[in-house]
Design a protein around this nucleic acid. Sequence first.
DNA 1: TTATCTATTTTTGGATCCAAAGTACAGTGC
DNA 2: GCACTGTACTTTGGATCCAAAAATAGATAA
Lengths: 234, 234
Amino acid sequence: MSSDDKSVVTRLRKLISEGGYQPGERIGEVRVAEQLGVSRTPVRLAFRTLEQEGLLQRANKRGFVVREFSQEDVLCAVEVRGALEGLAARRLAERGLAPAVREQLAGCIARGGELLGKGYLEEGDIARWSELNETFHCAIVEATGSRVIGDAIQRNNHLPFASADSIVIDSAALDREYQKLYLAHQQHQLVFQALQRGEGARAEMLMREHAYIGLRYGALFGLDPEPDAVQGDP
Amino acid sequence: MSSDDKSVVTRLRKLISEGGYQPGERIGEVRVAEQLGVSRTPVRLAFRTLEQEGLLQRANKRGFVVREFSQEDVLCAVEVRGALEGLAARRLAERGLAPAVREQLAGCIARGGELLGKGYLEEGDIARWSELNETFHCAIVEATGSRVIGDAIQRNNHLPFASADSIVIDSAALDREYQKLYLAHQQHQLVFQALQRGEGARAEMLMREHAYIGLRYGALFGLDPEPDAVQGDP
DNA sequence: TTATCTATTTTTGGATCCAAAGTACAGTGC
DNA sequence: GCACTGTACTTTGGATCCAAAAATAGATAA
């Protein structure tokens, strides 16, 4: 009753990640069902999905608790993504870029250059970057052909702060965020270069390093010296 | 009715991987429910879990189909495991081996040496190797501390032919399988050496290469020149 | 003869009901 | 006063029921 008809899994995921339930807290079916205005059945289904995604954890033979993520876990998730996207990039470089993919990646980079060419960042730019960044990363993964790597990345991305577009946060320091995005843009260009030249190892390593951008690159520009937000809202 | 009380997910996973349902085939709730002697509810729950694991795939807005895996998919899954276990090994090497872990790994290697020391392979040896191999790999992953990498590997392992102990098959050519296992044993020793010395990059690369052993090493010993079993029955 | 529209049937998704397992609380005995 | 046990309540898991959506088959018209 209380909201739109987005899938229960999505809504519950959001509910958890926005702090509706604290990490480590027990999460009950009935309460969630009431909160989402549905019966217990879809909630139970969603619990299983979220368990597999790693957001929920089976409590001692009895129900689920919200999984808590340490700094270490977030780092691991980022490194996992780096490893997997690196793998995808290497495979793509080794097999050669299909023209369509080449086009798509070039398009992303062109749009990125446009976006950052004016030398500063506006409010809407963040969303635009996020979108093209997403497209860039997805294009590389999808070009792998097989869904196996993509699925692995997808599952990992459900963990908090693991996905590729959990970068820009501090919209009060847009000037410094600009520098970070510019560096990201340059890394995209380098990855693209390596992919075009068939430099598999280089593409892989660039992609792996690129994964750290949301986690370790803030320090370069005086941003978030110690990021301590672990789960949930920006 | 028709079987023991193992979890529905496990039984259904086995049912699928043993060819009860063909890859690409639509899988219906009612039929599975009847086959397993349970109601539709637990089957629906299991479907969601298996969907996340990648064994099932949503048919366009209507039910599920059994996912089909190409040779390419199997290769991808193996490479994903290599990338992730490599990551785990690197982290472990960089952080140093805790004495307990060192002990456990050394134990695995000692048992492996014992097993292969006699120069040939007996029937029960395969199960023994499988068990110690499992222990070795798990120990490295678990020593990472964070569950994130372990979960990612675990999920990947549910894909057919992806897990670390899908190696030995041909029990009619035990002599040649012996050579493969011996090479695996040597690789374990090298990984252990690298871990002890804190050689992160080496440990990672060794582990990545080691992942191929179930897929590409048969050719060295005149085994399975073209493995074409993909999903399910031999 | 074929294509399209409609009706029936099949099947999934959601809600409710029932049983079983676990937990908490209270009472009693040592 | 503390511990143990029994009972009641909470909560999950499984089964059944109902509705809605899609597929299939049939019929009619072009």
